[in-house]
């Protein structure tokens, strides 16, 4: 009887230790995956050569709740989705400057832009873009509107835009702006006051 109890306990202990080891391995795997994902977020755009092209950015301002149209010249990649991505990265760069009128979370970046069916753009942002974005209806709306309007201004065929975070659909940007829907460029134009 005593031996039987001993055997059962020993078996239980072995199973428990095995499970603990398995749990430890799972934790390590999750940590590795997260590290890998973070590394993948810092994707580098291919170097662009060639003549500079006029670019239109719609820059948000929290102070007046408006988008300001800003013209500049930049050397852009020839490929359409890479070109759109470079423009949006330039837009986010402005928001990451210390003196910006529309701050967003540090480390925010555009992972990719996918153009589908000629008129639809899927903008894949990194985790920092959403996780560290200031929370608020106005702040989030301005970010979404400036992305959609800027894309449409530089690539007039883009009529619909969807924003993903780390390749995944998310309910809201930072608790407010709806990210489940496709935004119509024609509709978003009315979302903000356009300051020329």
């Amino acid at each position: 009887m005593t031996r039987r109890i001993l055997l059962v306990f020993a078996a239980l202990v072995i199973i428990a230790i095995g499970l603990a080891f398995y749990a430890l391995q799972l934790r390590r795997k999750v940590a590795r995956d997260e590290q890998l994902a973070a590394q993948q977020q810092i994707a580098i755009a291919p170097p662009a050569n060639g003549p500079s092209t006029p670019v239109t950015l719609y820059v948000a301002s929290d102070n007046n709740g408006a988008l300001t149209k800003t013209e500049m010249n930049a050397v852009l990649p020839a490929e359409r989705s890479e070109r759109d991505r470079s423009i949006l990265r330039g837009l986010l760069e402005l928001y990451l400057q210390p003196q910006t009128s529309h701050p967003i979370g540090a480390g925010a970046d555009i992972r990719d832009v996918y153009v589908m069916g000629d008129d639809t753009a899927i903008v894949d942002t990194n985790s920092a873009f959403a996780d560290a974005h200031p929370s608020g209806v106005l702040a989030e709306e301005l970010t979404v509107a400036s992305i959609v309007t800027t894309l449409n201004a530089n690539d007039a065929r883009i009529a619909k835009v969807k924003i993903l975070v780390n390749g995944q659909e998310r309910e809201t940007l930072a608790g407010h702006a709806d990210l489940r829907r496709f935004y119509l460029a024609s509709n978003v134009g009315q979302a903000t006051k356009d300051v020329p």
Binding site: N64, G65, H176, A177, D178, A191, T192
Partner: peptide
């Protein structure tokens, strides 16, 4: 104050 339209749920 500012009046705007917004992509806000559950408003839709």
């Amino acid at each position: 104050y500012t009046t705007l339209v917004a992509p806000l749920r559950p408003l839709n």
